Computed example of a mutant assay.
Amino acid sequence: MTTITTRRPSPGAPDAPGGSPARRRSHVIADSITMLHRNLLHMVRYPGLSMFTIGGPVVILLLLLFVFGGTLGAGLPGVDPAGGRAAYLAYVMPGILLITIAGTAGGTATTVAMDMTEGITARFRTMAISRTAVLAGHVLGNTIQAIIAVTLVLAVGLLIGFRPTAGPVDWLAAAGLIAFISSAISWLAVGMGMQSKSVETASNLPLLLTILPLLGSGFVPTASMPAGLQWFAQYQPFTPFIETLRGLLLGTPLGWNPVLAIGWCVVIAAAGFVWSTALYERKSVR
């Protein structure tokens, strides 16, 4: 069981009205680090969630590549003119990485729901711990887990033949985008976990996020879809995520996709933050 060291409430405590802004910020940072350490320990002690997060996308990748890749790789735009499995691997890899990020949301929602149902969050609420830090610890922990999972899935892709053309600047931009998307999805996952009435619901609700890359440009071009589905695929957030990552790693045209991807990250993160903090305040007073 993880031990949380707390301090006594004081005029300078983060939730105390008399604390200076600088002092409040320092307490929020310190508390966030403490909660991050707690969540990282959970990740180490319960490796099953991490293995599922990594194993699921790898299985999907191998299935798509070696069963359907030879056919689906013919005529794909902007990747490998030779077609075949190599072309489809290049095309599908960004979508697989986004599925990996979406998959980590399930672990975060489950952990948050466990804290809520077991009364741990209510106990934190009575302590002199920054309210934002309790939620930020989950977000930071899941963001780190998502980056690790993406790195491992990408390594599998490289082993089976994925050959990105990105330069150093492109790699840095891709890493920053992955971290930004992971953080935004994490805030949404925290809200899902706090909204869920049971751990089982919390573990299933984020599965909706893993469907969105399938309904975007992750596996086939959106132009090949029926009109109604094509409209949805083009305007949902995961399509600009995927197209931006594809452009950075493979040199395909970026267009307005980076702007849309950053905008969607801001919207998702802000919505998740407002939703989760509102739920935290409402449920803590019960």
Rank of each mutant, 00 (worst) to 15 (best):
T3D: 01
I4L: 10
S10M: 03
P11E: 00
A13P: 00
D15M: 03
A16R: 00
G19V: 00
S20Y: 02
R23K: 07
R24L: 04
A30K: 02
I33K: 01
T34M: 00
L41A: 13
L41D: 02
L41P: 00
M43R: 10
I54V: 15
V59Q: 07
I60N: 01
L61E: 04
L62M: 13
G69C: 11
G69Y: 05
G69T: 08
G70N: 11
L72H: 02
G73N: 06
G73H: 05
A74I: 13
A74Y: 05
L76A: 09
G84R: 08
A90H: 11
I101Q: 04
A102R: 04
G107M: 08
A109T: 09
T110P: 02
M114C: 06
M116D: 12
I120K: 02
I120S: 06
A122Q: 12
A128P: 03
N142D: 14
T143D: 05
Q145G: 09
T151H: 03
L158E: 03
L158Y: 06
F162P: 01
G167P: 01
V169P: 00
A173V: 05
A174C: 06
S183I: 04
W187F: 15
V190T: 13
G193Y: 06
G193K: 04
Q195R: 14
A202M: 07
S203P: 00
N204W: 02
I211M: 14
L215A: 15
V220E: 05
P221M: 09
M225S: 09
P226Q: 13
P226G: 11
L229R: 10
Q230P: 05
A233K: 06
T239A: 14
L245M: 12
T252P: 12
T252A: 14
P253M: 08
N257C: 03
N257H: 15
P258K: 11
I262C: 11
G263W: 13
V266D: 14
V267S: 12
I268C: 07
A271R: 02
V274K: 12
W275F: 15
A278E: 14
E281V: 14
V285F: 11
